[in-house]
Simulated assay, not measured.
Amino acid sequence: MKKLMLLFLLMVVIYSCSDSDTNDLNLNTDQNLIENPTFSIKFVKASNGSTMNNLQVGDSLVLTYKITGATIKPDEAFTIMPQPGGPISHQMLGEDYDLYFKNKKVDNIYTVENEGKFTLYIKKAGNFSHTYCAFIVNAKNNEIPKKLISKSELFFNSVRIVAYNYEIRLRKSSTWHHSLNGVFHKLYIDTGNEEYDKYLENLSYNVYYNSRSFEQSNFRNKENRDFYDVQKVEGGKRAYIINTIDKIIFKKDVNGIITNIEYKNIPVVSYGRKDDWGTEGNNNL
């Protein structure tokens, strides 16, 4: 009888251990198994200290990509391809932006690494709406055998800012009068040419320079506006000239929260005498 009881207890212990090991194995397998592969893109940094909400033409964006749940064979690789978007989405490679991978200008990203970095160089102003697709390809010829992993989207805005000064002749010198020149400081901001390129439309903003500020309201795309009072200078007198705008701050309401969009260190270009521009400035920037 004792032998039977001992045998029964031993079987219970063996069964319990076996069942526990099986549960642990299943749990570990479930944790590591990803049924649907994913592909994601994230913003890391931009040149000139910019962020995703105050990018300018000429800035570079450093982005990371990550592919999970997809493995490749020795004769395969990953290819990340920007989709051929039109002018509205600003995804025309070579026109709206350039793509760089490992310090080389490329049309797509070809790699065996499932995560890494790449860079976008912004060439135009606008509301960018990008889509990127990740594929598994043949490593020898980079062909896509229709093994789409996933898509990832990227949204951002860029603007082109031009600050400048110039002067025009208001009156010639005569026996009775000195010559009189008008000196202007203008700000021209381009948010893009397409229908939805209205990132800053109707916003109020402040221009800061030399410990001063100049306030404007109702921003309009590609409109020359004075950011300093027009000066009338007689004879050989010198006008007050601003060489750099310290910052321009726009105030934007995003879901009821006021957000500052700040552009810093804008150089002011001096064009000298430009009588043909009149009082409105250069409309061909």
Results as ranks from 00 to 15, higher is better:
Asp275Val: 03
Glu234Trp: 01
Ile249Leu: 09
Leu63His: 12
Ser211Ile: 00
Tyr164Pro: 03
Tyr166Ile: 00
Lys222Gly: 04
Lys151Ala: 07
Gln231Pro: 00
Asp107Arg: 15
Leu33Pro: 05
Met5Val: 13
Ile72Val: 13
Leu4Arg: 11
Asn165Glu: 02
Glu143Ser: 14
Ala163Ile: 00
Asp30Pro: 02
Arg220Ala: 05
Asn138Arg: 09
Tyr164His: 00
Asp96Asn: 10
Phe184Met: 00
Gly182His: 01
Asn218Tyr: 15
Asp59Phe: 06
Asp59Pro: 07
Leu148Met: 11
Thr29Ser: 07
Glu280Asn: 03
Asp246Glu: 11
Ser213Ala: 03
Asn141Lys: 07
Asn193Pro: 06
Gly278His: 02
Ile72His: 11
Leu285Met: 05
Asn23Glu: 14
Lys237Met: 02
Tyr121Glu: 15
Ser47Lys: 09
Val233Leu: 00
Leu180Gln: 04
Gln31Ile: 14
Phe8Met: 08
His178Trp: 04
Ser217Tyr: 10
Lys186Phe: 03
Ser50Lys: 10
Lys237Ala: 01
Asn283Tyr: 11
His185Ile: 02
Tyr166Leu: 01
Gln31Phe: 12
Asn265Ser: 09
Val106Glu: 11
Asn165Ile: 01
Ile136Glu: 12
Tyr263His: 02
Asp190Asn: 07
Lys251His: 13
Ile249Ala: 04
Ile261Arg: 06
Gly86Asn: 14
Ile168His: 02
Gly256Lys: 09
Glu223Arg: 10
Asp246Trp: 04
Glu143Val: 14
Val137Ala: 13
Glu76Gly: 11
